[in-house]
Amino acid sequence: MATGETGFGDVMFDLISVQYHSLKAGHDYGQYVRDAENGGYSDVADFFKQVMEEDSRRAAKCHEFLEKLTHQEDTGKS
């Protein structure tokens, strides 16, 4: 695995980045849901909830891959 300027492998860095942004966005979407609900837009709130769930699944998948890659690096397996 190639190591980028950060000292982490490029793929590892990319997964961490996607995970971070998915989690950050999910946090922000919580406010969007509240705004829509407070405005009486339940259909928009439902949309934001759906987007938040998609980002949550995305972050969880990144976590799975990161665990796998970390284990492979620890054991020297590819």
Rank of each mutant, 00 (worst) to 15 (best):
D28N: 13
M52I: 12
E67H: 12
G9M: 07
K49H: 15
S78D: 10
G26M: 03
S22R: 04
A25L: 03
Q72A: 11
Q50G: 13
Q19H: 15
V33Y: 06
D43Q: 12
D28Q: 15
K61T: 08
L23A: 07
G4H: 14
D46E: 14
A59R: 13
R34T: 02
K49S: 13
F48H: 03
G39D: 09
H63V: 10
Y32D: 04
F48K: 00
H71K: 12
Y41W: 08
D74M: 03
H71M: 14
E73N: 02
H63N: 14
S22W: 02
S17K: 05
S56N: 14
H27I: 07
Y29D: 00
D35N: 11
T6K: 01
G26I: 01
E73A: 03
E67Y: 11
K49A: 14
H63R: 09
E67W: 08
Y29S: 02
E5H: 10
Q31N: 13
E67K: 11
F65G: 03
A25Q: 00
D35L: 12
G4W: 07
A45S: 11
M1V: 03
R34W: 00
E54P: 01
D10F: 06
S78A: 11
G30H: 06
K77V: 07
H71Y: 14
L69N: 10
H71G: 10
H71S: 14
K77W: 03
D55V: 08
K61H: 12
V18W: 02
Y20G: 11
G4Q: 10
T6L: 02
E64W: 10
G26P: 00
S78G: 09
D46Y: 09
A45E: 07
V33H: 06
L69I: 12
Y29L: 13
E37V: 00
K68I: 08
C62W: 00
E67V: 07
V44S: 04
S17A: 07
G9R: 04
K24G: 09
K68D: 05
G76P: 03
R57S: 04
T3M: 11
A59D: 14
L66H: 05
N38Q: 14
V51F: 04
S78M: 13
T3Q: 08
N38V: 02
L66Q: 04
E73W: 00
V33S: 04
T3P: 05
Q72W: 06
L15R: 02
R58F: 06
G9A: 09
K24P: 08
C62E: 02
A59I: 11
V51S: 04
D35Y: 11
D35A: 10
S56W: 12
D28R: 15
R34D: 01
D28T: 10
Q31G: 10
V51M: 05
T75C: 12
V18R: 05
S56A: 15
D46R: 13
D10C: 10
Q31A: 09
L23V: 07
C62G: 05
